[in-house]
Design a protein around this nucleic acid. Structure first.
Lengths: 246, 246
DNA sequence: CGTGTGCTTGAGGGAGATCAACGTACGTGG
DNA sequence: CCACGTACGTTGATCTCCCTCAAGCACACG
């Protein structure tokens, strides 16, 4: 927690305030549902460790995932701002969640204005990523969709500081991949086979390993600008501490 | 402009500051491209009049729309925060745009912290809408997709103050509807026919008119909670002026 | 009155879904 | 150490929803 706060591109007083905020830690195991839309009671949650997935479901049980939640992110701004979450969150690995009373977060917002601006940055970037997902699902054929998704994950993990070789190893169940891409898990399996035939990826137990990142990115027509990687972390107040990107 | 600012759920000093910000007005006609991703130079834009659509394109020219931009909204936060826009904006009607230098907007953010919090609300709601679109495109069959889209537009326009009878009248070219839903315009045409056969909508010149809102919403399995209609406009600082929803 | 723009309709094809069976790795208990 | 069950992934056959391509139509506008 402390390490995570220290890295934020915020002023010292902002960080102090965050560290002094009352909080609770909860842990989840792979496969657990972290929260649901029908849960009453609003809590602000920050994922500090692990990997989680945001999804919505249809009445017939079909699922659509939108986002992976990486560490240091608020899980659900909607829950803070609107008092209800509009999606489900599931743990893909062991997950550690910080729970903070909503009122405390709102106090933080009111007294430390750099914090909502930081969140505005994150939210805007996340929205851009979701837009690109929508473009994939709406207009790209399955093989490009998958190539694009794998490339996006690789690039985002590299941006988050994962070493290139580890970032090329993507460990996600195929039914989750299908839920991200609007495909059935069977078709995901077939599509992975096609990528293997082309020598772009190979499979190791429970993971897809990117063999030819360039070729995969080319197949996907991947253009990383939507990830806003080179954006300044915090351009709003010139005096703000230049921190490490979250 | 003045009327628009007066309605914002902000304090008087915030509104004064907005009104004192240097700005330029530009007008566009139906069909015009308002901005493109490859345009250099960041400007903050607010749509004050008319209706616009955000979309991205693939190399082969295929298009995916994500959002309709209604009046009083920033067109492109990405452009303000990251210095580049990640999508195109096109005018669906006559459109009036306010252009403000990015530096002025960033000053506003820094000195009037309620403003970024207000934007955070809007951005979070927009993201929820985009998530629902992704769910549609990924998992709903065409007829439900269309029913859901039409219902969403009706409800959002009602929330924005349009009378129920006018809100039931949706005037959008079919190729744009297709771009929202990940369908071809031919299939949109066929799908509208199916809705007509069921007595849910009818067509008048250049517009779809919802006949049976309830039936349409039922077919779509529409649940309006993702629109966060009942959320407080500005819960952050209890002393903030309770304003009319934007 | 021609021309363009958007909508409709049809025939045919294909990408991906569905349904079902089978394979493989792994953990658990005997 | 092996038998078994479960969770995931693979593969095949068939089907269907939506796309593609093409032609025709309706209305607006010069």
């Amino acid at each position: 927690m402390i390490r995570f706060v220290r890295q934020l591109p915020l002023g010292e007083s902002d960080k102090e305030a965050i560290l002094n905020t009352p909080r609770d830690t909860r842990c989840f195991r792979r496969g657990d549902t972290i929260y649901r839309t029908d849960e009453p009671g609003a809590v602000a949650r920050i994922l500090v460790e692990g990997l989680a997935v945001r999804y919505r479901i249809l009445r017939n049980g079909e699922r659509q995932s939108a986002d992976l939640v990486f560490p240091t992110r608020f899980c659900d701004l909607g829950c803070i701002l609107f008092g209800e979450s509009d999606h489900f969150l599931a743990a893909l690995t062991e997950v550690e969640i910080l729970e903070i009373p909503v009122s405390s977060v709102l106090d933080l917002f009111a007294h430390h204005p750099r914090i909502p601006v930081l969140l505005l940055h994150q939210e805007t970037r996340d929205r851009s990523i979701m837009f690109e997902r929508l473009l994939s699902v709406g207009r790209r054929p399955a093989i490009r969709r998958l190539a694009h998704f794998l490339t996006e994950l690789r690039v985002r993990r590299e941006q988050a500081g994962v070493s290139p070789s580890r970032a090329r190893r993507i460990s996600l169940q195929q039914h989750w991949i299908g839920d991200f891409l609007g495909l059935t898990s069977e078709h995901v399996s077939r599509t992975i086979s096609k990528l293997k035939e082309r020598g772009l990826v190979e499979q190791q137990r429970n993971a897809i390993v990117i063999q030819d990142s360039g070729g995969l990115a080319r197949l996907a027509e991947f253009d990383s600008s939507y990830l806003h990687a080179d954006a300044p972390p915090q351009p709003v107040t010139p005096r703000s501490v230049a921190g490490i990107r979250s």
